[in-house]
Structure formats: C-alpha cells, structure tokens
C-alpha cells in the first residue's frame, strides 16, 4: 500500500498519559510514571474502505480514535491526511481537519448536549463551518434527518425524548453535517440493544455506500467488526499484533492473541464449541508493559526470543501483516 492511495496514513503513533504523582512520589523524588497506551501504531486508511479496530478494554483502541481526530495532542509519530502532515496544527487547521475527519462516540446519553434540541445541534454545526447560508440551513437540516431516517419533527425535540438508537442517529447526522471524508466510530453501537444495533449498522453501511465515506470502526464486538470491515486490525496493549483483510483474518488468524480473541467470541450455534484453550491470565498493566513481545506472558507458543525482542509487523504470504516471531510456524499449523 503506497502513500498515494491512502487517505489517512499513520506512522509510529505513540501516546502516553502521565500519572499524577502522589505526595510520597514527590518527597521521595520517584521518577514520573507513565501509562503507555499506544506504542508505535502504523495504519493506512484507503479511501472508501472500512478498517475495523478490535481489542479488549484498555488496549488503547479508544485512545487511538481520539488521537486521530486530535482530541489528544500528538505526542509522538506522524499523521498524514491526503499526504499532508497534520501533526502540528493551528486552531484553524485543526478545524479544517476536523471538518473532514469526524468522530462518533459510544455513549448515546452523554454525547449530546442535554439542553440543545436536535435542530440547534445541527444548525450550530452547519453555521460554524459555513456549510450552507443561513437561509438554506433549515432545508439542509431536513435533508440530514432524512439521511439518518429520523422524522423531520425531531428537530424540535431535546435528546432525552429519543431512544438510544435514535440518539446515535442524531450523532451520525451531526458528524455528517460537515460532509466529512472520514468517520471514526468509537464503539458506536456497543451501548444499544441487539435488534437496534442492526438498524444502526445498516444505516452506517448504507451511508458509506452512498456518500463514499471512509470509516474507522472501533469496537469490541468481533461479529460486528467482521460484518462491517474490509480490513481489520487487532490491538494488544497499544500495538497492532495483526492486520489484514477481514476475510482472511477471521477465517485464519495467525497471531496467537488474534486466535484467542476470535475464538473466545461465543457462537450462537450451541454445537460450535470453542476448541482452542482459553487464554490464561489477564491483560498486564499498561504501566509496565512486558519486555519483548507484550503477549509472551500469556502466549502458549512463547519462546526465549519472545521475551527479549519485540516483533515487528511483517507481511506473510496469503495473510496480512503479523507481529509475531513464530508467525511462519503458526501459519503452517
């Protein structure tokens, strides 16, 4: 994948949060501690594709989403949008970037201002970005409501008058109001009921088709990610351990963590029992990430080399890219 075809190109993105020192830390002059949430993420988003990002809670997938839209300042690494560096931006550049890269949030109850009607929310977005002249805005609001299949009288209502699924539609309409090229969906449907999830997922797929959107779909529900994504990245402790086309990755995952993760999702077929042994242990703390391959403590295939050196993402024939020292052996088994 060359830079010319990719709309968003991320290189070596790292992010860490400083832990507020306690009074003892200050007195004893302990060094500051950092939570390393992202450790060198490389990503390409091609125009019109959906990239799914999966991982367990605390793996850094939400932080990745927030870094990409600029909610967290860029600490380390590089983001290229349309081959232009967006790493160091002024306020105006940031606004322009965000007009083209929008985000939708997980919690349908906190992502909308409880005191603004839907009409006000959309009006604000349209007028701040001067997407339409003041006289055309009401017309555009109606279009947007139609687009996300909400009744037009929704414009006069406050968020609390809507159900969770409808609120996510409002959030989608808000994101679409500025006509972005990339949508970043952070656990967009996780908080919704199963039957409502399907409605919102269908809407998202339909909108992508119609508007040619590029989507980064962050979620922990593997079935959903598989369904909506062209390509999928599996994240473990802030690093991508495997990335590849959705079909091959789900059909034949290579990295031991991907295997464990994909197999752990309970099937709705009672006779399709998970045959692989479940992962032992739990996610290590991102405060001190294990040396070498971060997964070696829980990995059934770990050897000496895994404890010492961190594997790089490498392409493997017939598969995607895998960050594992034993990828080749595992592909054969």
């Amino acid at each position: 994948m060359t830079e010319n075809t990719s709309l968003l190109h991320v290189t070596n993105l790292s992010h860490q949060f400083k832990i507020d020192p306690s009074i003892f830390d200050v007195i004893l002059r302990r060094p500051s501690r950092y939570v390393k949430v992202l450790n060198g993420i490389d990503l390409n988003l091609a125009r019109g594709e959906t990239l799914g990002v999966v991982g367990e809670s605390g793996c850094g997938k939400s932080t990745l989403a927030r870094c990409l839209v600029g909610l967290y300042p860029l600490q380390n690494g590089e983001i290229l949008f349309n081959n232009q560096n967006v790493s160091h931006k002024t306020r105006a550049e940031q606004r322009d970037y965000n007009r083209r890269v929008q985000m939708m949030f997980q919690d349908p109850y906190s992502s909308l201002n409880p005191r603004m009607t839907v009409g006000q929310v959309l009006h604000e977005a349209l007028s701040v970005h001067k997407m339409r002249s003041e006289t055309e805005i009401p017309e555009r609001i109606n279009e947007l409501l139609d687009l996300v299949s909400l009744p037009r009288d929704a414009a006069d209502k406050l968020p609390h008058q809507f159900s969770g699924g409808q609120r996510q539609r409002i959030a989608i309409a808000r994101a679409l109001s500025v006509e972005p090229e990339i949508l970043i969906a952070d656990e967009l449907v996780s908080a919704l009921d199963v039957s409502v999830q399907a409605q919102v997922v269908n809407l998202l797929l339909d909108l992508q088709e119609r508007l040619g959107l590029t989507i980064l779909f962050v979620a922990h529900d593997l079935r959903l990610v598989r369904h909506v994504s062209h390509r999928v990245a599996v994240i473990y402790l802030g690093s991508i351990v495997e990335i590849g086309s959705s079909d091959s990755l789900f059909a034949n995952p290579i990295h031991p963590y991907s295997r464990a993760l994909l197999n752990a999702a309970p099937s709705i077929d009672p006779d399709k029992k998970n045959t692989t042994a479940p992962l032992t242990g739990e996610l290590p703390s991102p405060l001190n990430i294990p040396s070498g391959c971060a997964f070696h403590g829980r990995c059934p295939h770990a050897t000496e080399i895994c404890k010492k050196s961190k594997p790089e993402l490498k392409a493997l024939d017939g598969h995607g890219e895998i960050a594992c020292h034993h990828a080749k052996e595992l592909a054969l088994s």
């Binding site: 949030f105 992502s111 909308l112 701040v128």
Partner: peptide
C-alpha cells in the same frame, strides 16, 4: 467535561469559548 458532548464539540471544530 467528562461527557462526550464536550469532546464532540471539540471534534466539530468549535471554538473554546463556544
């Protein structure tokens, strides 16, 4: 600020004062 609508405002490119 812990609510996502504040983050959403930033992502929408609104000014801090807004």
């Amino acid at each position: 600020m812990a609510n996502d609508y504040a983050s959403a405002g930033k992502v929408m490119g609104y000014s801090d004062s807004r």
